[in-house]
């Protein structure tokens, strides 16, 4: 059940997204890291401003949602808008930290051995 005063924000979620409930891209999941690419400009939606401020350092989508106190799906829509305008960039952490990106351990071992042999 709802508690009185719980819903203490007059703007409804659909006004934030213009009625959309689905992000146009599927570039975002919960842990996608978002970095802002520009300073907030005047006249921007306040959520966009907050996202840009928040993402001056790479921040996960789920963290953005927690700070904005908005559902993740809504945040994804807001982020996809910003992404379409090139104001943020997004990347998936698995791709950067994943073992596939690092040189093969065997190779590294061989290099190490080679260095020691110098």
């Amino acid at each position: 059940m709802s508690r009185p005063g719980r819903d203490d924000d007059p703007d409804r979620l659909y006004t934030l997204t213009g009625g959309r409930s689905r992000a146009e891209t599927d570039a975002f999941d919960l842990v996608t890291l978002v970095v802002s690419e520009c300073e907030p400009a005047t006249g921007m939606q306040s959520e966009h401003v907050r996202i840009l401020r928040l993402c001056e350092h790479p921040t996960a989508v789920v963290e953005v949602a927690a700070h904005l106190n908005l559902p993740v799906s809504i945040v994804k829509i807001l982020l996809s808008d910003l992404l379409a305008l090139g104001r943020i960039t997004a990347r998936h952490p698995r791709m950067t930290a994943g073992a596939a990106q690092l040189p093969d351990t065997d190779l590294l071992e061989q290099v190490l051995v080679g260095l020691r042999n110098l």
């Binding site: 891209t25 570039a27 890291l33 690419e37 790479p58 990347r91 998936h92 791709m95 950067t96």
Partner: peptide, 24 residues
């Protein structure tokens, strides 16, 4: 961080170019 540029918006591109800067 170098790899984060405007044109790399998808996972694949990021994967292709990222020299493991450990954004995390």
């Amino acid at each position: 961080a170098e790899p984060i540029t405007a044109e790399r918006t998808t996972d694949e591109r990021a994967a292709a170019h990222a020299p493991a800067p450990a954004v995390a």
